[in-house]
Simulated assay, not measured.
Amino acid sequence: MDIFQRSIHLNAKKTDDDHLQVAGSLLDLEHSFHLELTVRVSTHTIVAATASMSKAPLTLCYSVLGSLDQLKGLSIERGIIKEIRSRLGGPKGCTHLIELLNDALRFTSMLLIGEAAGYGSRLGEDLSEEEIIAQGKKRLRNTCFVFAEEQGECPGSNLHN
């Protein structure tokens, strides 16, 4: 029997050649959050961050929304999750907002890595799968099975037999 459900949805769009708009939402039985980050692609820097709540379990929960100004100027790089927890986590913030921020930043980081690796929306149209993997291994070596330095048998490969 299910006792709780939470959904997190993330979406990104390019607003110009050097900016991404990343929107995230967290929805469960007690919360409804919306988060927007604007990121400069060339520097991996957060240039704006806003959040809103249309539902929270307590009225005091709404008071943490103004703290997102502290994200402005942060670079999306190794250690950013720890920095955000330091600035906005624990008794200074909301664990659910931190959860949404963590997911949004990991998502954004993946997009920035893809951008730097030359992946675009027409990727499969211009390159064969072997070319995509070879190109990807330059930056993504050993980040997953596809980009593994040496590909053994995938643990789930016998699931489709």
Rank of each mutant, 00 (worst) to 15 (best):
D2I: 15
F4D: 14
R6N: 09
R6A: 08
I8W: 12
K14Y: 08
Q21L: 09
A23F: 01
A23H: 05
A23N: 10
G24Q: 02
G24D: 11
S25P: 02
L27M: 06
D28L: 10
L29Y: 13
F33H: 00
L35T: 09
L37H: 03
V41Q: 10
T43E: 15
T43I: 11
H44C: 15
T45W: 02
V47T: 15
A49Q: 07
A49W: 11
T50H: 13
S52V: 11
M53W: 06
M53D: 07
P57W: 05
L58G: 03
T59N: 05
C61M: 05
C61R: 04
K72T: 15
G73K: 05
L74M: 13
S75K: 12
S75I: 11
I76Q: 00
I80M: 03
I81V: 13
S86F: 14
R87P: 01
L88C: 06
G90W: 06
G90S: 01
G90F: 00
G93V: 05
C94H: 00
T95K: 04
I98D: 01
E99T: 15
L100M: 01
L101F: 08
D103L: 04
D103H: 13
D103P: 00
A104Q: 03
S109A: 07
L111Q: 09
L112V: 11
L112K: 05
G114N: 13
Y119P: 08
G124W: 15
L127G: 06
E131N: 14
I133W: 06
K138N: 07
K138G: 02
G152Q: 07
C154R: 13
G156A: 15
H160F: 15
N161R: 15
